[in-house]
Amino acid sequence: MLNATLIALLVVMSLALIRAVLGPTIHDRILAVNMFGTKTVLLIAVICFTFGKPEFLDIALVYALINFVSVIGVLRYFEFRNEVKEQEAARD
């Protein structure tokens, strides 16, 4: 069952990557990348049980932290993009 979960995780991650490449807007891409990151955490956790290496769980924990912080950071960057554009247009 662990191996089947591993394969399902890889399939889901490839589907998320397809959406990240296709995604018409920037938010679609961020959504897909966020999903990819969450699934990566799960993948590392499952790998640590299939290969019998419990120390990999620390990596999964750190990856979860970094994934969240990076998504929030990128979102803050794009949140007020239109306002900035409008201000620049008004200034010109």
């Binding site: 807007t25 938010h27 961020i30 959504l31 966020n34 969450t38 955490v41 924990l61 979860a64 932290l65 994934n67 969240f68 998504v71 929030i72 979102l75 803050r76 794009f78 949140e79 007020f80 993009r81 239109n82 306002e83």
Partner: peptide, 20 residues
């Protein structure tokens, strides 16, 4: 951790999409 961050990330994403 994922229980706290996953809904927060979804909310931030929706808010960012709405604001932009």
């Amino acid at each position: 951790f994922i229980f706290f961050t996953s809904p927060t990330a979804s909310h931030a994403l929706a808010r960012s999409a709405q604001l932009s």
